[in-house]
Design a binder for these strands. Sequence first.
RNA 1: GGGCGAAUAGCUCAGCUGGUUAGAGCGCCUGUCUUACACACAGGAAGUCGGGGGUUCGAGUCCCUCUUCGCCCACCA
Length: 904
Amino acid sequence: MTASAPLPPASPRSQPAEIPAQYDPAATESALYADWTRAGVFTARPERTTRQGGDADAFTIMMPPPNVTAILHVGHGLNNTVQDVLVRWRRMAGDEALWLPGTDHAGIATQNVIEKQLAAEGKTRYDLGRDAFVARTEEFVRTTGGAILDQLKAIGASCDWTRTRYTLSPEMSAAVREAFVRLYEDGLIYRGHRVIHWCPRCLTSLSDEEAEHEDVEGKLYHIMYSLTDDPSQGLTVATTRPETMLGDVAVAVNPEDERYKALIGRTVTLPIAEIEIPIIADEYADPAFGTGVVKITPAHDPNDFEVGKRHKLPMPVIMTPEGTMGEGAEASGRVPAQLRGVDRFAARKMIVAQLEAEGSLIKAEPHRHAVRHCYRCDTVVEPRLSDQWFVRMKPLAEPALEAVKSGRTRILPERHEAVYVNWLEGIRDWNISRQLWWGHRVPVFYCDSCGWEDALREDPADCPKCRGVVRQDDDVLDTWFSSWLWPISTLGWPDTGARDLKTFYPGDVLVTAPEILFFWVARMIMAGYRFMGDAPFHTVYLHGTARDTQHRKMSKSLGNGIDPLDVVARYGADALRWTIVSGLGMGADAIFDPADLEKTFAPGRNFATKLWNIARFLLTAAGEERVQRIDAIDAARLTRADRWILSRLDIAIDECDAALGPARPSGAQWPVEQRRAGMRLNEYAESARRFVWNELADWYVEASKSRLQGSGPDRDVARAVLVHAFDQALRLLHPIVPFITEALWQRLPGHVDGEFIARAPWPVRRGTAPEPSGFELVQEVIIRIRQLRSDFAIAPGKPVTVHVAHRGDTTDGGAAERYFDTILREEAPTIERLARATLSWDPIPTGTPNAKAAIAGGATVAMLLDGAIDVARERMKYAKELAELEKQLGSLEKRLASPGFTSK
RNA sequence: GGGCGAAUAGCUCAGCUGGUUAGAGCGCCUGUCUUACACACAGGAAGUCGGGGGUUCGAGUCCCUCUUCGCCCACCA
């Protein structure tokens, strides 16, 4: 279905020194993706897993298959980025990761696409006929379908493309058929004659989930039905759909309703149709609503249908499948000639007009109510009596309910668990037949000569009973009837001995949007239990919806969407992914500004650039000589800054692990303390970013420059630490920004050709406990001096001397001050370089008019800043802000009693 | 009609079991092209944590209530 594109040439291997000044995502990304593919980095190897005698845990994610005709939008970008982050993380953490991609044939959606094409040619599907229509759709899917999978490669999705699946492939179709036949044989699939949701545009029935509620401003019409034997009296019924009155077979009142008790058993004349119908008593009539009298239209209302069954009433269908007025076999004479063939909404107007003319219309009041619409074409759904195939859901729902209640499967965010439980507890049977042509055909066969029928795994040649001609059911199955098998059918089910099925089932995480919790997620869990005896995953992660800044859902019709490929072209895939992941609060909607891509995605690009520049510095500074492994460095040779950054790295690793982890429950169920843990991708991103940018780049790199630029043995220590810290940082970041991290990692000194960061081990903390290095004090002193410089507007180039003095705090015997002083003396070069100041331990010259002082370092040591020649002038310049400054500088201000400083 | 969520700096959002001066990015202000990076660096301003009550030694964090948005579910014609 998807021809894999020819691989671009391998990424250019440049020498460290040749690293370009500017990162070019476009030139890097596709080449790297081709490298990964060529090396089989994303291909899962069953033999490595513990389930096949290896030592790696299997980690499986099934991609929610996008519609085969879909093109990539931000929702896909969001969904697949999350999955990719998880899969890349686990792959590095040592799991044998399988992310299985694929597409959905999308019954109604795809059929609609082709029908639109046909409409443009002035044709309908009936002009082509079933076989030709299906052939045309297949051809369309074969040539243009599945493009979205190639688009996913552009955002870096690390799917196992050797296992790509399609819900309408022969293998998946066989699984669908097997599942149907088994459920049929088990009595869990049955044909039901009842009122279902009917889309008059798609000309098919819909499941409850596919008929979406939407509030509309309608009218509640009050219509007089007069008593047959006394036309001067009558009952007033209230309805929002007067056109259905032609199908009325009774009016119902509540048996307890004193107003109407006496009328029960008498008859009224149905206006327009002029048919006599009975007044019946049924609990369904609510005395408090409207007039308390309900018209009963069993063929066009699910409640009325139930009433009709209870009272054994006829059930005339008075509309055609297309939604025009017309008659079924049982409805003869109900629809007047002038209404036949008239669209239901036009007919409503005509009927109301006629009732008004006859004086039967009492009133029409505005009425806001929810009306069901087709989820694919938004047409108002018409309830309609028909024969459909149903799945009996109660028995299937029970284990799925238990899975979540027991903690076998958790749903994040947690609040969705209640929604899930509530839905399953009230579950109703699932209408799985669709009157479409595109999909899996219902595998039920009929013999018209002897009446035989059965669901079969293989097409029969003739009737097994009478050798008569058999025909197959015309309907196809709901798309979701194939989707719910996705976690098992993709791995080889119904062959339970299939290697992939045994290796990768049950899987781990399902990542999707809350909208399809019922459509898909719940049903997959049911199918998992029914056919494999276990849930297909232990975690359901429901992410938010992509919205614009007005919180409107991004959609084609609103034109407020963002094309992920446009973002990739302008800022790079890593920038797109960074923005998605760093803003991904648990379950919160993702807000992007389609009107300002720069504002939305520049931070991601900037971050990539930062990484690029750190690498440029590192490669220049580390040179091309061999860099020692961090483990080869004697701990005694590590400087304060070295120990600090290594400790910060450990903390960053811990934080990332905590934000992401646990990868799976420690037992068969989620223990309470783990149940809500992990999957906090934004926190993970922030921890990694803070480490590499605010700690490694802002402090360690700056503090180590002189060591790196010098010569001698200490340079090797600094090089080893720097390369190690950056290497580990790249690994931490790789799941989020895979391209730039791969590009840089492969340039690090010591990189072995053919190794990928995508398969490199996930960082593990080195130290056993956080080590106080004293470097924090160095930072504090530097910050204080910088603040003083800034507060007093000392020109950047101007040299200053900072006098270090002690308060003489002896409460601890002076230990703290001695400790602090030692650090200051040892780290003086670093402080002087980063704060651009000279430290002095000389006493401050008494009477110096320009002396200033500051309390620094936890208020244990006084630092006096001298050499600020322009203090007086600056002081006057800032006179207005004096009050503010005093507040900030606290006790410093007290010591500033220099002469000539009288307030102005 | 039932259920749920959100409301925190100008903007988009963190703040998980209540505990020291409420955080980030962008934006804003002041400097700086400091030999990796101006897609950057240094310093800074900015929040009565939607309103009102309550519990507590202590609440953005728990309870009640109101307001405004949003979502899900639903056979009241």
